[in-house]
């Protein structure tokens, strides 16, 4: 899978690249408008991460060009601008998603994978890990082929972990993904812990060979036993 990261801020570009490479993606980068247009029209990418404000031009112009060429799709806008107008404009110009800076790497992973899955959907829409299978279209979870019922938030939590296998998922990232913007100002994320506790129990009872490990009190990591 080839991903192009169009981002002018080198530090951010490095982090994104490092994170995506951990997921075994092939990552290329572009730091300005000209390099970016050159690359998007010469090569094919499975997913493009596009910053709107670039040196020498706007990410929207790249989107427009791509749309004209019929090459739009699989584009995720990453922007510091959190305005509805920009979001709507981006999505109208053919972007698949809009991620506002600052974002969590776990969230970026989840969004990239969602875009890739939509593109490469070949009948199979499930994630496997160890002896477990998470069926995304049926919203069902099974261990060793045996159905294990999860409630909506447990399902979303596990799904998020599975999109970030063996990666750090911070409590904030998880809370924002599963509980939405409402966790914005919640000072204590202890409730996340109680949710994880329930999920751990279910995994244990159904004899799954995956577990949710704690990471230094800031988050969790889904690993094989």
């Amino acid at each position: 899978m080839k991903i192009l990261v169009i981002e002018d801020e080198p530090q951010l570009q490095n982090s994104i690249t490092e994170s995506l490479e951990k997921e075994n993606f092939l990552v290329e980068t572009a730091a300005d408008y000209h390099t970016a247009t050159e690359k998007v029209f010469v090569y094919d990418y499975d997913c493009i991460l596009l910053d709107i404000m670039l040196p020498n031009g706007s990410g929207f112009d790249i989107l427009k060009e791509l749309k004209k060429e019929g090459k739009s799709g699989n584009i995720i806008i990453i922007s510091a601008k959190d305005s509805l107008d920009d979001k709507l404009k981006g999505l109208e110009l053919g972007a698949d998603d809009y991620l506002t800076k600052p974002f969590h790497l776990a969230e970026l992973n989840a969004r990239v994978k969602a875009v890739l899955r939509r593109k490469n959907l070949n009948g199979k829409n499930s994630i496997e890990f160890g002896n477990t299978v998470l069926d995304l279209s049926e919203r069902k979870f099974s261990v060793n082929g045996k159905d294990t019922p999860l409630n909506r938030k447990e399902f979303d939590t596990l799904n998020y972990f599975l999109l970030n296998k063996k990666r750090l998922v911070t409590k904030t990232a998880l809370a924002e993904h599963v509980w939405g913007d409402n966790t914005d100002q919640v000072d204590s994320l202890d409730f996340v812990y109680s949710q994880i506790k329930n999920l751990r129990k279910k995994l244990q009872r159904s004899e799954a060979d995956i577990e949710i490990a704690s990471v230094y009190g800031v988050g969790y990591k889904l690993v094989e036993k």
């Binding site: 801020e9 530090q11 951010l12 982090s15 994104i16 490092e18 994170s19 951990k22 510091a80 601008k81 506002t100 800076k101 600052p102 974002f103 969590h104 790497l105 776990a106 990666r167 750090l168 911070t170 990471v215 230094y216 800031v218 988050g219």
Partner: peptide
């Protein structure tokens, strides 16, 4: 606050990678 978004994003992401 808009200009702070990008540096904050850099710090957050670097720390996330560091913790891994």
């Amino acid at each position: 606050s808009h200009e702070l978004q990008t540096p904050l994003a850099m710090v957050i992401n670097k720390l996330e990678l560091l913790l891994e």
